[in-house]
Structures are given as structure tokens and as C-alpha cells.
Design a protein around this nucleic acid. Structure first.
Lengths: 346, 346
DNA sequence: CTGTTAGCGCCTTCAG
DNA sequence: CTGAAGGCGCTAACAG
């Protein structure tokens, strides 16, 4: 990059990317045919050790880097897996993607990241662009997809995993947990602690909504009908949690428990409660969802629902891998479950 | 996926992926040549509107999805950008990747995510795999790369952006900020507040190290030589922050300021201080780095250094885009700067 | 504005 | 164990 030698006058000074070494260059240098080089790379077991050495040498000399575009085109396998998720900033998804990527990379696959944004329908726009790279598998976040999306995906004829939720009718496979069950478990848990006057601070997001419905069903079964609820944006922050509690309190009702759709919100509630001198858990129980890194260090430590976020990614990768490597289809529906973590706020 | 019709007895029941529609199928159906279909997709301005309509119709009927592997192979442009970063869980990187992806997608590029893991040398392993997909550009996290890496990258002949740090000698381009300056600014700021007895809680990570050195240089210039330091892992958590303060205190020294390599650690310090009845900022000033979402909501709100994480991604994308779209080379070194955010802990 | 020709770089298939 | 032929699906370059 430093001092490029002055080029001889040329009409077009544009630099046509210097053609990089191809399999032929390597073959010529090694005095072998291209196919032999190819075999060294893809199926070394079928080549004599000496030959391998010769090829390796030639590869090193030429700095050859195989062109997977060409390879994939003819082999029909791209070793690429696409993940389509709305955005990374959803803290649940970060660990998930990390698990996915780790597992995939270990098996020689790579991750094409499609950040579709909200609303979910955006996913439909991204899909053709993604599919045009001929991934060997696709991972989707959530189970709510447009008919169009489902159809295109089916037609692609590759393994698909939906994640985070559960459904009896997956596009292909699904790895997740029952969101309704989570909500129900939260409600039951708090009820068991003797709480009766509930407030909810909830993000308006489809999966969160299911947890909400699950909780409300349990509450209603107990004859608890009036449950003041503050809806906040899809992107929960501590600030929104604080605001949420303020709004709830402004309603004039008395509460003995606040459920939040995420730990981030719950942390905000804790902060606002402290600022107002409301003692947690004595006067108010608080419960979140997610068990984020900070959750055991809030004051008091936050009671929440733990989901193994990374594991969802790992299992999704495995489900794909099983099919892509031609193994038998894994289970179509995998429930990773969840766990109530009782700490100091309940 | 539901009821696949029973195939006539065949030796191999393996399902060879049903060959999907190609540009020829579309061309035939539209009564045109393949190249015309190609033009409708890549350069519609060069095609008569009626013809476009005919082609669009045929595409819809066949469910044709272009094969970019083939297209990229011949055109020499993959419309793919690779980002190589150690791991997502580093909270600074999430917003960064989001910015990168948003900007790239808006311009029709997609993101290949390479999570290299630590140590940084791992990056070298991933590189050939990434490059074999022939990305049009590469984004790297940090500026510390092995010679091998730098060389392979140069040889690839594509635009490269390093990020987060600054260097006079980038592989190609760099978008970041001076880490030493950040450390120096933190030290100066705290000194200006009259603090003199410093403790450091610092992650052992290369960039954090530079901030540390920057801070220490300023401190030493003031004759402050003894600065007890607790080193923690690369992966800062609140728990480590708490532990960090405990260890610092166990040393028996008296402190009036604690600097942390990240807000996460600082939040832990705040928690531990509260638990011990140490009043912040009266007895102890605390300062972090990053200005995370939670930082304005801690108690008291955290003083920190703000970096526009997303913007680094956006500018990195722009730098690449300028070159990939054949425009003029952007500036080679872009300093995004930073900002001291004074809140309640100093 | 549309078509023809020729190959991108590699791997499958079949032959030695 | 190694090689020759052929083509994956598409687009650059050149004609018309």
C-alpha cells in the first residue's frame, strides 16, 4: 500500500483487481492436474501423502485461496448458514447468535447475518437477497412469519430452524420454549408468594405478548381481573422501566407485585422504587425475564426467568448441521425450557 | 413439507435438492434471452419497460431467485462484506455491528459475520475461510493484527477498514478513536475534580490497555506513581466490578477515585460501594467507559466516556462503500472522537 | 434495446 | 491414486 510505483501512463488508472491465484496456478506449479489440488483440499484421504505435500507447498508459494463461489456453484453446497433476526440490540439475541456462530464455525460453516429490522414483515424483503447466496440452511428468529416467507422458504428446499418460540406447525424445525408457559409460571410463582395486586410493564413485541397472555390467563383463573398494564416500546431500557413504574403508580392503584417483560425493564423498576423509597420485596415484588448478566447484582438481586440463550443457538446449529451433513433429520420440535430464578426481589 | 407424494421405488431415496429455477427458465417463459433477464435484474435502465414487465411476470411465475454465487463468480463482485470481530458479547461491538449492517444493507451489501474469538491471533485462522467467499471488503476490529494477517489482507486487493482504535499505519483504512487519549482525558478530568488517590479496575484487553497507559502517563506527570490496579478478565461483568473494588479496598490503601475500563465494571463498583456504605461521589469518585444504556440510570448516574459506537460501524461501512462502488478513496484515517459525560459519580 | 459467444473457477463423473 | 472432459448459472464484451 505504501508507495505504489508510478504506473506507466494509461487511459484508465482504475486498478482492475490483480487476478489472484487459481487452482490452475497451483496445479501447474506442482506439476499436477487441478483436480488433484482440489482433492487435497476437499478429500485429502484420496491423495498420496507425497502429493499432498507437493500441493501444500505450491499453495503456500502462490498464496492460493480457494474460490468458494466457484466451488459452491458446482458442488451445490455453500457451507453458508443465514440467520435472519430483527436486530442485535435485543440482548437475548446476542448470546444466541454467538452460540450459533461458534457451533457452525466449528463445523466449517459460516454465518451470513441478516438484520431485518422491525416490523417482522421486513424479513420478507431480505429473504430473496439472502437466498440468492444459496445458504445451506436458514435460522429464523421467532415463529411468526408471513405466508409468503414460509412459502419461499419451503421452496428453497433447505433445512430451516425457527427459534425462541414453540409451534406445532414449524416451517421445518423449531428450537425454543413456550412463551405462554413462561408467563404462566411467573404468575403462579408470584401468586404462590401471596401477591395479589399486580401491575405489568411490558414491551409490545409478539413474543412478549405471549408471555403476557400466559400470565393473564393464570391471574384471571384466580379471579384477578384488573391488572394495570403499561406498554412500552419494543426496545426496553432501564429508563422505560423507571417510567413504567411511575405511570403505574400514577394510576392511583396499590400494587404488591410488578411483572416486567424483561430484566432491563425490571432493573429500571428497581431503580425507580429505590428513588421513591419503596422497599423491595417487602412492599413490592419485582420480577423480570431473561436473567441477564447484571440481574444477580442489582439491589436487591433480581428474581427472574432464566433461558439458556446460547444453547438455543447451539441447538439450532445442530439441528441444521444434522440435515446439512446428510444425517437423519433431528427432532422437528425442540423445547429448551426455562427456569425460575428466585433471588431478592420476590 | 406436508405429505410428500410417495415416490416411485427408487434405489436412492435421498432427496436431491429439487433444482430451482434458473435464468434460462425465466428467459424461456418470457420468450427472451437470458441476458435480457439478467439486465432486468442488474441494469433495468437498459431495458424497455414492456420487456421488464414480461420478465417480472416470468420471474414471479417461476419463483426465480438469482444465484449470486454464479453472478459473483463472473462479475467479480460478491456484494458481500465480511466483519471479523472477536465476539459479540463485548457490548461495544453490538451497536457497531448493527450500524455496519444497516448501512451496508441499505446499499445492497450483506454481512458475513466472522466471530474469531480470543486471542486475537485466531483471526488469522478465520481469514482464509472468509476470503474464500470473495468479499468485496473486510472490516476488522482493532488495529493489532499479525503480520501474516496484514499481508494476506493486502494481497486480497480489496478495501479493508480497521476500527475502534487509531493508527498511523493502517492496513488500508481505519475508523476509530485514540484509546490513549481517552485514558488521558479520564485522568485529567478526575484530577481536575481534585482527586488524587486513584485505583484502577481494568480488563486485560489490548485496547483497554492503551487507555490505561494513557491515564497512567497523565497521573505520573502529576507525580502520582502509586496506583493500585486490579486486572480482571477480558469479559467484564458487574460481578467483576464488585470484586474489583473489594480487592482494591483489601489492599489497605485509601482511595478517592476509581477508574474502570468499562461501564459494566463501574456499575459493579457502584453496587459494591453501596453495599459497603461508601458514598459516591463524596467519598469515592467512579468513572467508567462506554456510556452504555444503563449508565444514566445507575444510582447515582454514572460519569463515563461516550463513544458513538453505531457511528463507527456506519463510517466503516461508508469508507468501504466509497471504494467498492468505485468512488474515490475516502480519508484513510477517520477519528470519531469521544466525549466526557459528567453525571453523578464524579 | 436485444442477442451471441465465451468463459469465471471449480468439482462431478467417468476413465484410466 | 490421478486425470480429462464437461458444465454449474451467470454476465462481460461485443454485435446487431
Amino acid at each position: 500500500m505504501p508507495d505504489t510505483p508510478p504506473e506507466p501512463l494509461s487511459v484508465d488508472a482504475g486498478n482492475p483487481r490483480p487476478r489472484s491465484a487459481t487452482i490452475k496456478d497451483v496445479a501447474r506449479l506442482a506439476g499436477l492436474s487441478p483436480i488433484t489440488v482440489s482433492r487435497v483440499l476437499n478429500n485429502p484421504a484420496a491423495v498420496r501423502p507425497e502429493t499432498i505435500a507437493r500441493v501444500r507447498e505450491a499453495i503456500a508459494q502462490t498464496g492460493y485461496i480457494p474460490n468458494l463461489l466457484a466451488g459452491s456453484l458446482v458442488s451445490g453446497r455453500s457451507r453458508l448458514v443465514a440467520a435472519i433476526i430483527p436486530r442485535l440490540s435485543n440482548s437475548m439475541l446476542v448470546d444466541f447468535v454467538q452460540g450459533l456462530s461458534d457451533q457452525l464455525e466449528a463445523r466449517g460453516y459460516q454465518l451470513l447475518l441478516g438484520l431485518s429490522g422491525y416490523p417482522v414483515e421486513q424479513e420478507e424483503k431480505l429473504l430473496p437477497a439472502i437466498l440468492s447466496r444459496r445458504p445451506d440452511g436458514v435460522v429464523l428468529s421467532g415463529t411468526d412469519h408471513s405466508d409468503e416467507t414460509r412459502q419461499i422458504l419451503q421452496a428453497a428446499g433447505i433445512p430451516i430452524v425457527e427459534t425462541w418460540d414453540l409451534t406445532a406447525n414449524p416451517v421445518d424445525m423449531v428450537v425454543g420454549l413456550s412463551q405462554e408457559e413462561v408467563g404462566a409460571a411467573m404468575a403462579r410463582f408470584l401468586l404462590g408468594k401471596g401477591r395479589r395486586r399486580f401491575g405489568m410493564i411490558w414491551a409490545c413485541d409478539k413474543r412478549a405478548r405471549k408471555r403476557y397472555d400466559g400470565a393473564m390467563a393464570v391471574l384471571r383463573a384466580q379471579g384477578i381481573e384488573l391488572v394495570p398494564t403499561v406498554e412500552v416500546s419494543k426496545f426496553p431500557t432501564m429508563g422505560l422501566g423507571r417510567l413504567g413504574l411511575s405511570e403505574l403508580l400514577a394510576g392511583g392503584e396499590a400494587f404488591d407485585a410488578v411483572m416486567c417483560s424483561s430484566d432491563t425493564l425490571a432493573q429500571g423498576v428497581l431503580t425507580e422504587a429505590a428513588a421513591r423509597g419503596i422497599s423491595v420485596p417487602q412492599q413490592l415484588a419485582v420480577m423480570g425475564f431473561g436473567d441477564f448478566d447484571f440481574s444477580e447484582h442489582t439491589m436487591p438481586p433480581l428474581s427472574t426467568i432464566r433461558v439458556d440463550k446460547r444453547r438455543i443457538g447451539v441447538l439450532a446449529a445442530n439441528a441444521l448441521l444434522a440435515r446439512m451433513d446428510g444425517g437423519q433429520p433431528a427432532q422437528r420440535v425442540i423445547d429448551v425450557g426455562f427456569e425460575i430464578v428466585e433471588r431478592g426481589t420476590t
